[in-house]
Design a protein around this nucleic acid. Structure first.
Lengths: 339, 339
DNA sequence: AAAGCTTTTGACACCGGTTTCCTTTTTCGC
DNA sequence: GCGAAAAAGGAAACCGGTGTCAAAAGCTTT
């Protein structure tokens, strides 16, 4: 009889089923070398006792645990959460769990902090979200620590095994061409901060579309922000106060687009009649500002799922995907230019 | 000599330092029964080897692990992330890690899913976020599984050891009194969904303030939503189409307040001149809509930190706090009524 | 019926820590 | 200088699983 009200162990199962613990272990791990008889017998005892293998003991014996990590510096809350959901889609019905670890990319000790974290937790693998996914030293650290990793990003930062990427450049080009198709000629760009791959890609997509249609992009039609709301307000203010005011703005993310809304509003410009705006991210704010913002969205949840699968089941087909198409979400902040 | 390029174990340390593993264990755990000599010697070897104890082995031997869980059904992304940060504040420089587990409160198997999750991961303790923190069966499940828990909520759902709460009722009363102080008399309420403690508390706070000032709250001045954007739009539409249109609305969360913005806009009502609106949550959308929304905010990060401390260091002073004051964040969606 | 395979099962060591209990050494009072 | 108590340290078992390897059982074949 198992000791009362203690969670049963493999020994309890073995004793009651009248087999060795190794045999129970075989049942748990679905070893092929088992007679149907013993398997059903042991499974019966397992069910009866409600036995669940101790993950710590397994982790110790197998010399690896079943913990995935999520490293991020809050690109935006919705994205982080969607990725978490995607990872959960992937690890549902497995023994894996997801550990989160926010980091501060401006901290000089970030890398050391992460190293200590990895040493301490010995994770099976980590997912790295943008913008810190662009940090190559971080990827090397993972390699060095023997920790698997997958980076989410807007570009091919790494080889297929380690990346889940989106096609920012192409989709931004499409968005700009959509504006051009509506008749816009003076289209301005609010760029993301220097040094960000995503900012670079989106800028290139923008410029490529403009150039393809022979449209000029004077310096006054480009303005840089930090991906934050206030910076979008300021960047848009500069653009809108330029002599040749643009009729449309592409903002490199939604927060800055929301800032641009405010800048337009305070100049009595109507959206979309006087000014069309397109953002990027498809964050919740995009749907909740007025008018709802036309924007570009990553399939974040699917990307999170794919990234997790790359770590835990790299052989499977679904884990092979590494390029995910972003798409334009049309709402009401875009219209043809006036006149 | 330790086996090359393997992570060192307690045995390596013991061998090199010329002591038994138990002595190394004593050093790690800061046992008092140690001579200064051996302690420094062993510490030297630990530093030299870069030894970090294996958490799985520790967990197995101690029969408890160092994993905290976060159970939530996405109240809103910002809140979840802030709580995560708060938990991280608490567990920084400890060996604890945070495991996240989104759940679907509408799924009939939610409780079973969580049970399997707890069985599988054997967490040290879990934090439960609203709205599922209001589920008493869930709390009982934790108790039954021998898993610590702390609920975040707006009401006294549980005893002090298991709750981190806010004072929704009082602060909503204050918000309404602020409106009354500005001269508003016809103030309407957009309620949260039936069965939510938070919705109940906020309604009670609203009604208490109105009653205290002798102001009537006719049925046409109350409208119910689901905490979602669209429901806010619909609820506000009903309120604004009533014969005696309100001059101010208190919405039980920001998303519904944002919906109310749209309803007002589509009726050509100016905010705050024709209609003042107050929300609840201080979510990012509150700052990004136009005009910025006056709202009530929980100190979510601090609450997350306190909740984690309750689990991992219940004795400490900082873990005693269980009531955290929400406060009114004044922005620009409130003004005196017209005329 | 014995030999030779293949399949099934178990004994035992091991993963890397902690705990129990016991031995050795040090300290101290007289 | 001696004995007793206290302090320091170690041997072995244990936590709950898995890996190795050999033994046992079942099935053919001769």
């Amino acid at each position: 009889m198992p000791k009362s009200n203690k969670t049963p162990t493999i020994n309890d199962v073995a004793r009651i089923a009248g087999v060795s613990k190794k045999t129970v272990s075989r049942v748990i791990n679905r070893s092929a070398l088992l007679s149907e008889d013993t398997r059903t017998k042991v499974e019966g005892v397992i069910a009866e006792l409600g036995y669940v293998p101790n993950p710590q003991a397994r982790a110790l014996a197998l010399r690896r645990n079943f913990l995935l990590g999520l490293l991020h510096d809050n690109p935006n809350a919705q994205t982080v959460l969607k990725v978490q959901e995607g990872v959960l889609d992937a690890i549902r019905d497995t023994e894996f769990a997801l550990v989160v670890r926010p980091v501060d990319r401006h901290s000089p000790t970030m890398l050391d902090d992460i190293r200590r974290f990895l040493e301490l937790q010995r994770l099976y693998g980590v997912l790295i979200l943008p913008p810190i996914s662009e940090n190559d030293a971080l990827a090397e650290l993972c390699l060095e620590m023997g920790c698997g990793y997958v980076r989410l990003g807007s570009a091919m930062l790494d080889d297929e095994e380690h990346i889940v990427a989106s096609n920012d450049r192409e989709v931004v080009s499409q968005a700009v061409e959509y504006l051009i198709g509506l008749g816009h000629r003076r289209i301005a760009l609010i760029e993301g901060p220097e040094g960000f791959r995503s900012a670079l890609e989106r800028r290139e997509g923008f410029l490529a579309a403009m150039q393809a249609h022979g449209l000029p992009v004077p310096p006054t039609a480009r303005s840089q922000g930090t991906y934050r709301f206030e910076s979008g307000l300021e960047a848009a203010s500069r653009l809108l106060d330029a002599p040749e005011r643009p009729t449309a703005i592409f903002a490199s993310n939604d927060e800055m687009a929301a800032g641009a809304f405010h800048a337009a509003r305070s100049r009595d410009l109507k959206i979309p009649e006087d000014l069309s705006i397109i953002g990027f991210d498809d964050s919740p704010v995009a749907a909740h500002i007025w008018p709802p913002l036309t924007t570009v969205g990553w399939p974040v949840r699917e990307m999170g799922r794919a990234a997790a699968l790359k770590l835990i089941a790299p052989g499977e087909e679904a884990a092979q995907a590494f390029r995910f198409p972003a798409r334009l979400v049309q709402r009401q902040s875009v219209g043809p230019p006036r006149g």
